[in-house]
Design a protein around this nucleic acid. Structure first.
Lengths: 174, 174
DNA sequence: CATGATGTAAAACGATCGTTTTACATTTCA
DNA sequence: TGAAATGTAAAACGATCGTTTTACATCATG
């Protein structure tokens, strides 16, 4: 694990735990175990570091969503939350904290959510054997809701979403 | 509208738009149209101002959820988003930005989410004529999901959630 | 053996943070 | 009428922000 990877990993942890704006560079250098000179050589700036963190997060998150059924989608979310916990979608949080200023961040968020939405549509199509945009939107809402309700409801929220998605999918099948 | 009300209203707008941490006191005094001396006399501190904003938000939001059917619940969310827009739940955002430090904020969020959850359960019970904790959890997840998916999907997310909730409620009725 | 490349430690940059203070104006009301 | 209450404008507080710089160590490779 090289310097950059260590930095990105530490930054993702701190941004997620304390928020993007509230996390200072001192805390980042301490957690990454490197001098600020090295941090800036690798990351460029705090905004670029946020971009890199979101890019890495997108990669790791989307990798887990490579499934072929709606039920497996929610099983994947259940795994994610069990392993990584959840304090709400890190992309929406980044967008909210930067308030639409920082166009690079806004674009990273937009790109991630588009990819996410496309993947949900693909999973629904694979499960049903045909496209169903309405069901896809419902599944997307359930997923987003599970991720956010889980912040205060825990795994129960994911179970409820999974059950609801199963009911709606079964109904769409017939 | 007295000084305090003007302050709380301006602060809610700015916190929602730019984030809690990123919004400085200078911006707040400018938007509220008062000196920092007056602001501190009325608010005490930035943390206390956040508490007051969340308290006022809770009051206004919960007032809109005084309905007796699941469908009316999502109609209320649709109204809210149409009037106030949505950048994600302000309570979850406050909790995420303060990272669990600031116990007063964490407590305000916990209290709001408990009240919200109770109200959803009450609405589901009124709609069905009996309690149904599983359906209540599903409706809660759909509501939370609609509020967050609407950030990037707009009113479509609310419509999808409303339809899904209607389907699930109808199923629970029979 | 030298010369980049890659790193650390630590001081310093100007800007901005949340907050308090100083000095003064206006209004309210016993 | 005169003091208390409530406000403004603006400077200043020490702390911390993101970032750059200075000075020095280590190490692989020509």
């Amino acid at each position: 694990m090289d310097t950059t990877d260590k930095l990105i990993a530490a930054a993702e942890r701190l941004f997620d735990r304390y928020g993007f704006v509230a996390t200072g560079m001192d805390r980042l250098t301490a957690a990454a175990g490197m001098s600020s000179r090295t941090l800036y050589k690798h990351a460029g700036s705090k905004t670029q570091l946020m971009e890199r963190v979101l890019s890495e997060r997108d990669r790791r998150f989307m990798a887990r969503l490579r499934v072929r059924s709606v039920d497996a989608l929610f099983a994947a979310l259940d795994d994610w939350i069990r392993i990584e916990g959840t304090r709400g979608c890190l992309f929406l949080r980044a967008a909210a904290e930067t308030g639409g200023d920082a166009p690079e961040i806004a674009e990273a968020v937009r790109a991630h959510k588009t990819a996410f939405q496309d993947q949900v549509a693909r999973i629904v199509a694979a499960d049903l054997g045909r496209e169903d945009p309405d069901l896809a939107e419902q599944v997307l809402v359930l997923f987003e809701g599970a991720a956010h309700a889980a912040v205060y409801r825990g795994a129960d929220a994911v179970r409820a979403a999974r059950k609801a998605a199963s009911t709606l999918t079964e109904r769409a099948r017939s």
